[in-house]
Design a protein around this nucleic acid. Structure first.
Lengths: 198, 198
DNA sequence: CGCTAAAAGCAAATAATTTGCGTTAATGGA
DNA sequence: TCCATTAACGCAAATTATTTGCTTTTAGCG
């Protein structure tokens, strides 16, 4: 299994990888993913097909590789001033992004690959974002549930519905957030130091 | 898109479909799924490859087709005498089945297909099983949450974790069941008739 | 029983994938 | 800095998969 980040991270190898990734993104913009083939990508990237075959093995792995990069969060969760607001805004944005055609396709690409390392990465990205919101909540002295509780209570239901054919409504999503926040301890678990207000 | 159950349900066509499905199952038993190809399946099934190409289009669709049949529940949820017991036993069995290598592969096959009709079917199967448990609970006069609540609170977290790299522990699964049952109304919503005990 | 057309078979044409081997260039040590 | 080593690339030939045009079989129906 030729993983992508093991050997020779510099120079030509890196250039080829970048070129191939760009080619995939460019092609996916202009055509249906069912019509994207490795020889086509190779031509667009200016490399020989066997390079791609040897490095990624299958189209599916390459697509998963590109998809996971696009799923990497590119900004911090918006700070609304409260834990509830932060989580609500983040969740609605996350849901919208994942429900869109592109989001769905990317998720499918990631899950379809034999190697599930990319799926794990996606999970880690999401957890990081939630952890940031949780940290802010704790810094403010607000209660906030465990990351796992948010994953189970908010993320999982959204993703499940998207994958298995349903588009989660905004009301449903808001409900998930409300419920998971209600399950949080009413006091912060362990403020870093005594509250300023004391 | 040549769907599978539109036309000519009888005779040769049905025989070919059965033969191809059997061939896929047989091959998946003896070899890695990465090595299963359409020409191989065709040879095993005694049909010509172009038949498979025209009918299913891609290997992925055929695999999804076979997988969804294997995911169809083949028995009623076990009746333990109580809603909690029924849901616990069913959930643990479901989780075990889906976490196994075969379960994971089948889920991946279903989700990887372009056509998400099979994914919808899987969701429907699960809902039916839960509905049966819910009906029994209501018949006994027990409280039971909405199907959607069970999907969000139990099924989705399990599937999410399996898909995104984690194996849900039995304690976690039991917790999910406990929590969703705690959220059920304490009285049955509308008993079919007055309880016998009255 | 015969008509019609959907589905299957066959084979040729096309396209994708694999593989052996020579070349390029990234990395590490003298 | 230069050289040795070898990962990664390119090329082309061989193999394998996929598509397609046409023919044959047969399910569905009057």
């Amino acid at each position: 299994m030729p993983a992508k980040e093991n050997l020779r991270p510099g120079g030509r190898s890196a250039r080829v990888q970048a070129s191939v990734h760009n080619a995939v993104r460019a092609l996916l913009k202009t055509m249906d993913r069912a019509d994207v083939t490795i020889p086509l990508i190779a031509a667009e990237a200016g490399v020989t097909p066997s390079t791609i075959y040897r490095r990624w093995g299958e189209l599916q792995e390459l697509l998963a590789d590109v998809a996971v990069e696009r799923l990497r969060p590119d900004m911090l969760p918006i700070d609304t001033g409260s834990a509830r607001g932060d989580l609500e805004v983040w969740t609605e944005q996350y849901c919208e992004e994942m429900s869109s055609g592109i989001g769905r396709d990317m998720m499918r690409d990631v899950l379809a690959a034999q190697d599930n390392a990319n799926a794990c990465k996606c999970d880690a990205f999401t957890r990081e974002q939630i952890a940031l919101i949780a940290e802010r909540a704790h810094a403010r002295g607000e209660a906030f549930p465990d990351i796992d509780a948010v994953m189970d209570g908010v993320v999982a239901p959204i993703i499940y519905r998207i994958l298995f054919g349903d588009q989660p409504s905004i009301e449903r999503v808001r409900n998930l957030v409300t419920n998971v926040l209600a399950s949080a301890p009413t006091r912060p678990r362990q403020p870093a130091s005594a509250p300023i207000s004391g």
